[in-house]
Design a protein around this nucleic acid. Structure first.
Length: 828
RNA sequence: GCCCGGAUGGUGGAAUUGGUAGACACAAGGGACUUAAAAUCCCUCGGCCUUUGGGUCAUGCGGGUUCAAUUCCCGCUCCGGGCACCA
């Protein structure tokens, strides 16, 4: 009788053994090449979901594989523990966010352990703990001193009924998700990180990671940073001292600028109309427009509307009056929030001019036709020759861009500039569950940072939680009232907390030295482990999290904390787990709980299924039935290994009477080792690696009845053992058990990855396809690398091929070695 | 709307550098074993036609390049991700 495969017993047994023996504890060892593998840490939402299982299984395969390859692997795990869901849960259930988060962490940690992931739990981090966020507060203070933090006007979603600030996620169709009240944008001073100071470097250093990051992620980041070269132009306002500055990539059209459009958020929008009969209309227009979100406002279908402010500015080149409008399609976030309108050469300006009957002046003519401003039906946006532009008439517009910019520069009315779409990072959150911003408002001294020795500023726990919400720390007198670090007088603490993206922008460095309490980072340890060799996470983080982390790394370098410039050497973006056509997520209610799978089929089967279902980069469509196949395969592996052990023990040592040939299996074994190694190492294609190992299992099953003597069984044993070792990163528990059942002493986690013998990988014979005029008409078997003449002759001799070439004239024969022969014929 | 991806049998997917489309699985159907069931093992499995040799269509749609296109180019459709306060 053989032991039955019982995942419940085996999995917990090996999980305990690994833990007891500290199998995954990482320590600096200069003699060994380090490998820092990291998966994006989870938000402790309550239970792990399929996305976590997929992400962490992919990571675990690589971590275990690299360890077997001899690397000193660090594979840490932690918790992105601040954030909105904890507050929502607090409101819904009356639990304190801290308690809710703590419970979730302990439950999810247990779940991760049940999956058998190879984490070094000694490095665990939770971002909501003061011993973590105190360093973030230190960074904030140092950044403030370097001018990398500033306070500026910003806009918040405000619900008048709930009297609360709403996150974008909490706004549905412009209305509050709880009470349905139309939200409005409220002005509020907020803290910003000056990420734009790094815009150029973030763009330039893409070349340093280019080889190892997915192309599409870098493309998205480049577009997000959005560098463009253009010109700043200042327009004088009639009757005022102020000027309006615009950014344009088309200074060549300046002579055609006939009016000015301001974003409703523009500080001048209200000021310009003050005291005029337009004041009320402008105010109403701005209020109305601010209700529409940015997506709507940039849409093609969005009706372009505006209102005259009652004021004019002066075109710096023509000297003509240009009416100033507030227009709903102008965005405050891009450029300067003001656009010089050139209706003849910009479609939006054209539509606007037609609607409000504003002058259209053509300043660029195409070379092959003549435009007429009275009859044109769309803006002319192509290249052409300047007209109506004084001394620039007749110049190609591309050249005029530089010529006009030079003129503006000479007259002090503008200059060439570079503009980025990237905006500074607003990090203020008017929420309780986050890192307190270590600043103090003093009436006398203004904004003063907390003294570094007074850190951490601990988030107070005594908050009021009701069904309606959670009080802000601004309502806790003991927290809010303090003394000024500079003058010692009465002062008020900043009560905004930081965006949780700040915590996740540097956690990967802290993993190198999670316990250090003298400084955020231990330089030696960081120097050994950083950068992360392989980072793995969802494609949904392609821009924000990854860009913020890159920014933080560069900034911490400049603040003297670390010596590297890019945090993640290699990136793998894993696709999402999709069910019913949408991303599996709590908010969509289509979540599959992996816990049921682990109980019913085991962690190994769950891991195998996740890896086999799709390649990591692709979205994975959830299918409940697939796990059966994974589970069946493990049963097959189990029986094969235990039975072979008995059979080989009984086999006669001397060659038996029936000759047999195990060459085929030996070849397949080495080819499989090669294939699996390359699939993991070069391509991260775990699904095809598993398929290859399934093929090997099928071949062993077929070869088994042919085995007669000890030599034959030695080949089979070699196959089975190679298989068990190669499968161990994928299904670590069952393989560990089989390894020990086969009589091995040491644990499989400490085994070396198998090597393949190139000689045994060679193919003896290959099947090549014969085409006639590009259509397959037969196949022939030939020796690997057979000479072209021989192959061509064999191809022409094929019976079916003959039917298609007989009676035609041979044009040519294309031979691609070991692949195909294509015979081109023409009818006679 | 803007930026970035994706689409291959009933299903998940494979085809690594332009060279036999459908590897490996799932589901389905058939058979063996069994008192029976489960498990296991074996076989069939894109559509249509067929004289069972094979022929023909087929990788979201429409064009193109090539001896040869799932793969490269152009134009679409649909689906997904991101859009700066979800993480």
């Amino acid at each position: 009788m053989h032991l039955k495969y019982d995942h419940r017993i085996i999995e917990s047994k090996w999980q305990q053994t690994w833990e007891k023996t500290n199998a995954f504890k990482a320590a600096e060892d200069p003699a060994k090449e380090k490998y820092y593998l990291l998966e994006m840490f989870p938000y402790p939402s309550g239970r792990i979901h399929m996305g976590h299982v997929r992400n962490y299984t992919i990571g675990d395969v690589i971590a275990r594989y690299k360890k077997m390859k001899g690397f000193n692997v660090m594979h840490p795990m932690g918790w992105d523990a601040f954030g909105m869901p904890a507050e929502n849960a607090a409101i819904a259930k009356g639990v304190h966010p801290k308690a809710w988060t703590k419970d979730n962490i302990s439950y999810m940690k247990d779940q991760l352990k049940q999956m058998g992931f190879s984490y070094d739990w000694d490095r665990e981090i939770a971002t909501c703990k003061p011993d973590y966020y105190r360093w973030e507060q230190l960074f904030f203070i140092r950044m403030f001193k370097e001018g990398l933090v500033y306070r500026d006007r910003g806009f918040l979603n405000w619900c008048d009924t709930c009297k609360t600030v709403l996150a974008n996620e909490q706004v549905e169709d412009g209305k509050c998700w709880r009470c349905g009240t139309q939200i409005r944008l409220k002005e509020h001073n907020q803290w910003f990180f000056r990420i734009t100071r790094y815009a150029q470097e973030l763009l330039d250093s893409i070349k340093d990671i280019k080889q190892e990051w997915p192309e599409r992620v870098l493309t998205m980041q480049k577009n997000w940073i959005g560098r463009s070269t253009g010109t700043h132009i200042r327009f004088a306002i009639k009757g005022m001292d102020n000027k309006i500055e615009v950014f344009t990539t088309r200074p060549d059209t300046l002579y055609g600028a006939t009016f000015m459009s301001l974003a409703p958020e523009h500080p001048l929008a209200k000021t310009l109309s003050k005291g005029s009969d337009q004041e009320d209309r402008v105010r109403r227009f701005i209020e109305k427009t601010l209700l529409d979100d940015a997506l709507t406002r940039t849409s093609d279908q969005y009706e372009k509307k505006g209102v005259f402010t009652g004021r004019y500015c002066i075109n710096p080149l023509t000297g003509k009056k240009m009416p100033i409008f507030v227009a709903n399609f102008v965005l405050y976030d891009y450029g300067t929030g003001a656009v010089m309108a050139v209706p003849a050469h910009d479609q939006r300006d054209f539509d606007f001019a037609k609607k409000y009957d504003l002058p259209i002046t053509i300043v660029i003519q195409p070379e092959d036709s003549v435009l007429d401003s009275d009859t044109m039906e769309a803006a002319f946006v192509e290249d052409g020759i300047l007209v109506n532009s004084d001394s620039f008439n007749g110049m190609e517009n591309k050249k005029a861009i530089h010529a006009i910019t030079s003129l503006l520069k000479e007259t002090g009315q503008g200059e060439a500039t570079i503009n980025f779409k990237l905006r500074d990072w607003g990090i203020s959150r008017q929420r309780y569950w986050g890192t307190p911003i270590p600043m103090v408002h003093c009436e006398k001294c203004g904004l003063v940072p907390v003294k570094e020795e007074d850190l951490p500023i601990v988030l107070p726990e005594e908050v009021e939680i009701t069904e309606d919400g959670i009080s802000s720390i601004s309502e806790i007198p003991s927290f809010i009232h303090t003394t000024c670090p500079e003058c010692g007088g009465k002062a008020i603490r900043e009560s905004d907390t930081m965006d949780t993206f700040v915590e996740s922008s540097w956690y990967f460095i802290r993993y190198c030295c999670p316990l250090s309490d003298q400084a955020p980072f231990d330089k030696d340890k960081v120097a050994y482990w950083m950068p992360v060799d392989q980072y793995i996470g969802g494609i949904e983080h392609a821009i924000l999290h990854l860009l913020y982390s890159r920014f933080f790394t560069k900034m911490l370098r400049d603040l003297g904390f670390i010596d590297i410039s890019e945090p993640f050497k290699r990136l793998l973006t894993q696709g999402m787990v999709i069910k019913d056509g949408a991303k599996m997520s709590k908010s969509k209610g289509n979540v599959v709980d992996p816990e049921n799978l682990i109980h019913a089929y085991g962690a190994d089967a769950t891991r195998l299924f996740c890896l086999f279902a799709a390649p990591p980069e692709r979205d994975m469509d959830w299918n409940d039935k697939g796990i059966e196949g994974a589970s069946r395969f493990l049963g097959r592996l189990w029986r094969l290994s235990t039975e072979i052990k008995d059979e080989s023990a009984k086999a006669p040592a001397m060659p038996g009477d029936v000759p047999s040939d195990m060459k085929g299996l030996k070849r397949k074994t080495h080819q499989t080792i090669k294939k699996v190694t390359e699939d993991i190492d070069k391509r991260f294609r775990f699904n095809t690696a598993i398929a290859a190992m399934m093929e090997l299992v099928n071949d062993i099953y077929k070869a088994r009845p042919e085995a007669r003597n000890a030599d034959d069984f030695a080949v089979i044993k070699e196959s089975v053992e190679a298989l068990i070792i190669m499968l161990s990163p994928f299904v670590p528990h069952i393989t560990e058990e089989l390894w020990s059942l086969l009589g091995h002493d040491g644990m499989l986690v400490h085994q070396k990855w198998p090597e393949y013998d190139p000689l045994w990988c060679e193919v003896e014979e290959t099947t090549i396809a014969i085409q006639v005029n590009g259509k397959i008409r037969g196949t022939i078997a030939v020796k690997q690398d057979a000479p072209a003449d021989e192959v061509k002759a064999l191809a022409m001799a094929n019976n079916n091929v003959k039917r298609f070439i007989e009676g035609s004239n041979l044009v040519k024969v294309i031979h691609v070695p070991n692949k195909i022969v294509n015979i081109i014929v023409k009818p006679a």
